[in-house]
Design a protein around this nucleic acid. Structure first.
Length: 287
RNA sequence: GGCCUCGUGGCAGAGUGGUCAUGCAGCGCCCUGCAAAGGCGUGGACGUCGGUUCGAUUCCGGCCGAGGCCU
């Protein structure tokens, strides 16, 4: 927010869950007040009934960047989804979107078959990808199968073609906000309690009433499953909160593993020091 | 005071005279269109002291601790 104000910027989302309309509190989306104060893009604009994707994000974000440019605003891309940043900064291989029917066929197959059986299908059709993927990884096996079937070419083949970064990001300044490790668990707990105080339970209750499939990404947002279990009378609120905090900690850990590996050249900023470092951060951005 | 049951890794929970429980958590890691997803790997234990035995977490005894019943 401080950067956006200073630079006359627009804040563009890079978080896979903050795109969904139905979940504002639980995904820690910018509040309506914040959103009114400064231009924001790609927040809460997708129905939870849809499965959004990195591919769609790459297109939407490129459009948001172009729009920012045309208005003379500085784009400030903010979020925690490493793959979305990769999609923007490195680009994804130019693979056509999977045919919806083919996709749903293989996803249903995945629900019915064991991962190994699914993998056997892949081995029969695309030995190269089958070799590359573990027979225990149904999600990626499905992806390989649907790409092969809709395009007639192996995913391995497609992935040999490098993607291209979104235009204008070559000289992007990259900041990596990092939590203080020893205080992270406590911060996560506090954040979840605050979400409950802000009405997360009611939000999930509305989401639950939509009766969406549990397979959809929105239903896998952190805290959704435990809060639904509580609403269904299966566990008490404290147990639900503990479960939500636990899955958040586990997610944060995976996230950090990704960052360590993929965001090596980013400039680290300790979250606790962000306020104090603002001047320094401005200098880094504006150099 | 007596009798009985029990005492396994952070937690739950099997089991055995000599070889591995397992699950969860923790820790490490992977990642090109569901990524807040999906997947892989991994340390750590048998309350304590003695006895029996080639060998005891496993059998026997003392002690300590927990629970139950009786007085």
């Amino acid at each position: 927010m401080a950067l956006a104000e200073r630079l006359d910027g627009v804040i563009i989302n890079a978080d896979s869950m903050q795109v969904y309309r139905e979940l504002a509190i639980l995904t820690a989306r910018p509040s309506p007040t914040e959103a009114a104060r400064l231009p924001h893009a790609l927040y809460g604009f997708v129905s939870g009934a849809e499965a959004y994707s990195a591919g769609r994000y790459a297109n939407d974000a490129a459009a948001a960047l172009a729009e920012a440019r045309s208005r003379g605003r500085v784009p400030i891309i903010v979020g925690g989804t490493g793959l979305y940043f990769r999609a923007l900064l490195t680009g994804l291989s130019p693979i056509p979107a999977a045919d919806p029917e083919v996709r749903s066929h293989w996803r249903q197959a995945a629900a019915r078959l064991t991962p190994r059986e699914l993998h056997a299908h892949l081995t029969a059709r695309d030995p190269v990808m089958a070799e590359r993927l573990l027979p225990t990884d149904p999600q990626r096996i499905v992806r390989a199968l649907e790409v092969l079937e809709t395009t007639g070419r192996s995913l391995a083949d497609w992935q040999r073609q490098p993607g291209s970064p979104a235009p204008g990001l070559a000289d992007a300044r990259r900041l990596l906000l990092l939590p203080e490790a020893t205080q992270h668990a406590a911060a996560i707990a506090r954040r979840f309690e605050a979400m409950l105080g802000d009405g997360a339970l009611a939000e999930v209750s509305h989401l639950r009433a939509l009766g969406l499939s549990g397979e959809l990404p929105i239903m896998r947002a952190l805290g959704v499953a435990p809060l639904i279990a509580h609403l269904a009378g299966k566990i008490d609120l404290e147990a639900a909160a503990n479960a939500a905090k636990l899955e958040t900690r586990q997610y944060a850990k995976r996230q950090l593993t990704w960052f360590r590996r993929n965001m090596i050249a980013w400039r680290p900023v300790k979250m606790e020091e962000m306020q104090r470092s603002l001047r320094e951060i401005f200098a880094f951005i504006e150099r």
